[in-house]
Simulated scan of single mutants.
Amino acid sequence: MNLKKIITIASVVLISGLLIYGGILANQVFSKNTKFSQSEVFVFVPTDATYEDVKKILEPFVENMNRFEMVASKRSYPENVKSGRFLLTKGMNSYDLVKAMRSNVPVKLAFNNQERLEDFATRVSSQIEPDSLTLMKIFKDSIFLKENGFTEENVFAMFIPNTYEVYWNITAEKFRDKMIKEYHNFWNEERIAKAKKQGLTPVEATILASIVHKESVKKDERPRIAGVYLNRLKIEMPLQADPTVIYALKKKDNDFNQVIKRVLYNDLFLTSPYNTYKVIGLPPGPIAMPDITALEAVLNPEKNDFIYFCASVDRFGYHEFAVTLPEHNINAKKYADWINSQGVKR
């Protein structure tokens, strides 16, 4: 056999071998390698996770880990693990999986209608990596509070309900910094001027808005209620807001899960800075997270002469308003008679 023939045969063998290897490699890289039935799933890689940690996280979703590891190794993923939230879609191959694990997908973080800072921290921690205790510690950091003009009682006013885009593995500090930035974005010069016109700071406006928020779910009525409370503040009359008494009762019992439908006469004597029947002016902090309509109601209140109001028995969800105490007493008796007829004790 001459040399030319030997070279030809060797070349054929080599090429065949390369084709076979190429086929195996292509199968390793580009064949389907997922085993979940959903169209997509998110996986979460904690901060400081190792490659071994990632493999354990991915194991329930990857059909053949050996194939994934081969591609991951070729693409230097084990040395460059990223933490965060990653999107896997059904039918991804190993190449796609490795690529996906390098693309941190933001979270649409939403919150509203939280009653306390603790509830807010729990809500947020269910959507990002930092836990609620870490968030609480960061929110109440004394240096941060002093630098930004908050106290532990009123720092809850910093959080403006909305939907925000953040990375799942954002640190507690960076999340707090984003929230204070959003707070200043909301409290622009125009809104600060409107609050000042009502004799309020942004924090005070938020505290009052939290009361308005709790008083009525009817957005069209909130500017009127805000007007009433501002009238009371101007004449230095106690706000006499039942929602603040309910908050004080819950705070005293350290039980914010209890349902209180009725404020009793004896409740009005509870000693608490949140009992606005005994304390003139605003409570030291918000009694809830007011939504934007409640905030705007305080900034754009209805101009009226009303001093009193109570729940209506003719238009459920709304209130009856009065200028004088005798007028109010008629409305209040009507409501008291109705609620007694319903057997509501508490």
Rank of each mutant, 00 (worst) to 15 (best):
Q258F: 11
A332F: 03
G149H: 05
Q198F: 04
V263I: 05
D53K: 05
P202G: 09
G227M: 04
N33M: 10
I307S: 07
S11I: 13
I15K: 06
N185W: 02
S31A: 09
Q240I: 00
K345S: 11
L14E: 09
C310S: 05
S31H: 09
A121T: 10
K214A: 10
S312G: 04
K32I: 13
Y277L: 02
F156C: 11
L109F: 10
D305V: 10
R85P: 08
S272K: 05
Q258E: 15
A322V: 06
V155W: 09
H319F: 01
K252E: 15
K181H: 09
N254M: 14
N340A: 11
G317N: 02
R75D: 11
I170R: 07
V107M: 08
H328N: 11
V81P: 10
D131E: 08
D337H: 06
L87K: 15
N113H: 08
K56D: 07
P223T: 06
D253I: 09
S16W: 08
V228C: 03
N304L: 07
T50R: 05
L208Q: 01
I207N: 05
R315D: 12
W187N: 05
T201V: 06
L3T: 01
E79F: 13
Y308K: 04
I9V: 15
S216C: 01
V81E: 10
D177P: 05
I7R: 03
R224P: 03
F30H: 12
Y277E: 00
P326M: 11
D220Q: 02
V245H: 00
D141Y: 12
V344N: 02
Y164F: 12
D255G: 14
G22C: 03
I292K: 06
Y277M: 02
K278V: 01
N33K: 07
E118Q: 15
E153Q: 15
